[in-house]
Amino acid sequence: MTDIDLQALRRGDEVEFLNLVRAYHSSLVRLALVYSPTRELAEEAVQETWIAVLRGLDGFEGRATLHTWICRILVTIARRRSAAESKVLPFSSLGDQHDAGPTVDPSRFLKSGPDAGRWASTVPDWSTVPENRLLSNEMQHVVSEAIARLSTSQQLVITLRDVHGWTSGEVSELLDVEAGHQRVILHRARSRVRDALERYLAPDTARAGS
């Protein structure tokens, strides 16, 4: 994680402030998007967060990491701003109870015979996809859209764990979700992102005879 010199920030070092902004702004917008109906509102929530971060900087004691502390401030602000917020919804009500069953379409596996449960057709090998394609803006767009289609709880968990790099413990504490349940949610969310990428990368990985 990015090392930020808090003393420099308090002194008025603009370069250090920009380092902080560049390190976290985009991932904060992504987190805010979970709570906001539009990108514009998400940006506003993040802007409000930066103001709160600066105001609270002197009180920040470094018990949490700076990153975790900023995210907590954002979540508080974003929850307050979101219309559904008047009472904080328990995590369990954020809806993925309807998302049960296997994460891979069962038709991808053989149904009967001695090989039942094995893949029915070849799984595309992404090791041959060029690196610049994997890192393209288009690819980011596909991932972003896939996340936007997830349930709120899935969006929160995948954003905190995989975009922000939070630990399972940090997420459990912030969202009050038990570790086992969180793993199930994360697995579903990641599987959906993988699905979207598989469709997107299909032309790159089409192989003769498969």
């Binding site: 603009e14 985009s26 996340i147 995989d162």
Partner: peptide
């Protein structure tokens, strides 16, 4: 191959954090 796909999906998700904010955003935050 499936495990590699999941790894790459996780990496692609992590990449979303590395989008630089635009200069207008930076200016307003400054």
């Amino acid at each position: 191959a499936y495990i590699l796909q999941m790894r790459l999906a996780i990496r692609a998700t992590a990449d979303l954090a590395h989008v630089a904010p635009g200069s207008t955003v930076e200016d307003s935050l400054l």
